[in-house]
Write a protein that binds this DNA or RNA. Structure first.
Length: 475
RNA sequence: GCCGGGGUGGCCGAGUGGUUAGGCGGCGGGCUGCAGACCCGCCGAGAUGGGUUCAAAUCCCAUCCCCGGCUCCA
């Protein structure tokens, strides 16, 4: 069984077959760089990152393109509010965007095209659309004529008549149909503008994605992704523009992630409940945040709240603990029955992980498979103090690849045991050495008191058959 | 008004017509000098009302509730 994905276009799970053998081309709608990205954006980018990583794990060569919208109403407004130039605003926030992606261990796209650097290509596309009769010019504006594109609505399921009835937009008298959308907007006072056959102006939002996606990925490519809010009108319009231009299908699979809510509600400026990635990272580690964001299926809503993230933290801790225990085992050269059993269980769980990911990227189920490995490892460690070297490395590598390479969660062990100060590290070691001597003399009361006091100071002390271990309490 | 998603055990969260999701939590047991970590067992469920079926959380109908798209939005 190969990979199956839920295609918004058609609203059903389909077998995934890339257009070219061994290669997958993906386009992800990137940010409008007028502010820091928030954790809802992060959910979308992390999901795209995991799709990319899993496809690579499956042996595909993946090309991922994600745009940066650097000309837009919101940037213009921000520029007017702050007095900074539009270029400066988009520079600040696109830098911040990349920093946030890096912090979350989201791999950077292969190409991150900027709208302002593709104005001439967009003009060319618009001109072509006018020539083909899909677009019309009114004063300095150019609009796409939705009636000319038969399939309009095929992605979102919206019908034109219904759109007109429900239209809450004030009707623009220049448009032939209320659902027509701007390809080119004529210049307004104080706005940036480029010269075009229709006079000075700037491109509409939707045209940039169609144009840049086709430029870097070809007229037809494999996967187009984004949050579900983009289905309409953005992606619907992208399809209209691209397909009426080329007469070919635009993207073959459309994947849309559900919302990340905060307190059960969608994040919005008006509710004031937006949590930026930077703020979230002040409280939680990237690993915990990532683990939390993939603990629900991407097409299920997920609520960002303290309790749920605390649970994610504990769960992840459990995985790291098992890895730490595995790594602390002494190596030997003989392989016994317990090793065979451990390997069998880990291989079996790996298969379940792959099956889960093959089924429309079911990350919660994939995580359950990792917990199967965790239990197998822990059971082994409970019964053995040593492990055959090859078994150890196969088990570790299996977990490492799935956790780090596929899910993008860096394994954090070992370094948790150290503080940032060598002096403190040595002091703790010294105290534990003394305590060990007390324990040898069965001075339980004083030993327990030392452990208790250290705990109050934020050190976790654990006596194990392999000796006493310590680490800092997770923040 | 039109379109879509959902309601699962104390909590998070999957599968999907019959056989264990998983994790957290609680309880009991094991291992420990004790604690922790870990292992084992148990606890507990599918909004409501009907229907189909030998069998439904899973299919059908109705009802209630929640969320979203139709406007910038991941």
């Amino acid at each position: 069984m190969g990979l199956r994905v839920f295609n918004t276009l058609g609203m059903r799970k389909e077998e995934f077959v890339p257009l070219r053998d061994g290669e997958v081309r993906i386009y992800v709608c990137g940010p409008t760089v007028y502010d820091f990205i928030h954790i809802g954006n992060a959910r979308a980018f992390i999901f795209a990152d995991i799709v990319r990583r899993y496809l690579e794990y499956r042996g595909f060569n993946v090309i991922l393109v994600s745009n940066i919208t650097d000309v837009d109403d919101k940037i213009i407004r921000r520029s007017q509010e702050t007095g900074l130039s539009m270029q400066r605003i988009s520079e600040i926030y696109s830098d911040a965007y990349f920093e946030d992606l890096d912090a979350l261990n989201v791999r950077r796209p292969n190409v991150s095209p900027r709208a302002t650097q593709h104005i001439s290509e967009m003009i060319e596309v618009i001109q072509n659309l006018i020539e083909k009769g899909f677009a019309y010019q009114v004063d300095g504006d150019v609009y796409f004529d939705v009636l000319k594109f038969e399939d309009y609505g095929k992605l979102s399921g919206n019908k034109l008549e219904a759109l007109e009835m429900g239209a809450r937009i004030e009707v623009n008298p220049k448009k032939r149909n209320p659902a027509d959308f701007a390809l080119w907007k004529s210049r307004k006072e104080g706005e940036p503008a480029w010269y075009s056959p229709w006079g000075w102006g700037r491109p509409g939002w939707h045209i940039e994605c169609s144009t840049m996606a086709m430029k870097y990925l070809g007229e037809t490519f494999d996967i187009h992704m984004g949050g579900k809010d983009l289905i309409f009108p953005h992606h619907e319009n992208e399809i209209a523009q691209a397909e009426s231009l080329t007469g070919k299908p635009f993207a073959r699979y459309w994947l849309h992630n559900e919302w990340l809510t905060v307190g059960g509600q969608k994040m919005s400026k008006s509710l004031g409940n937006i949590i930026t990635v930077r703020d979230a990272l002040k409280i939680y580690s990237p690993q915990v945040l990532r683990f939390f964001l993939i603990s629900a299926h991407y097409r299920s809503p997920l609520d960002f709240n303290k309790e749920s993230i605390e649970q994610a933290k504990i769960n992840l801790e459990k995985i790291f603990n098992a890895i730490e225990r595995l790594l602390s085992l002494k190596e030997r050269s003989e392989r016994g029955e317990d090793e065979e059993f451990l390997l069998a269980q880990v291989r079996e769980a790996k298969k379940r992980f792959e099956e889960a990911m093959d089924d429309d990227f079911n990350t919660p189920l994939a995580i359950a498979a990792i917990f199967d490995m965790v239990r197998a490892v822990n059971t082994y460690v409970n019964r053995n103090g040593e492990i055959e070297a090859a078994t150890k490395s196969e088990v570790y590598e299996t977990i490492r690849v799935l956790l780090e390479d596929v899910l993008g969660i860096k394994i954090e062990v070992g370094k948790r045991e150290k503080t940032r100060s060598d002096i403190i590290n040595s002091l703790v070691e010294l105290i534990l050495e003394v305590r060990q001597e007390m324990r040898r003399r069965k001075e339980w009361e004083i030993s327990d008191k030392i452990r208790e006091r250290l705990q109050m100071l934020g050190f976790i002390i654990e006596d194990t058959p392999q000796g006493t271990k310590w680490r800092l309490k997770e923040t």
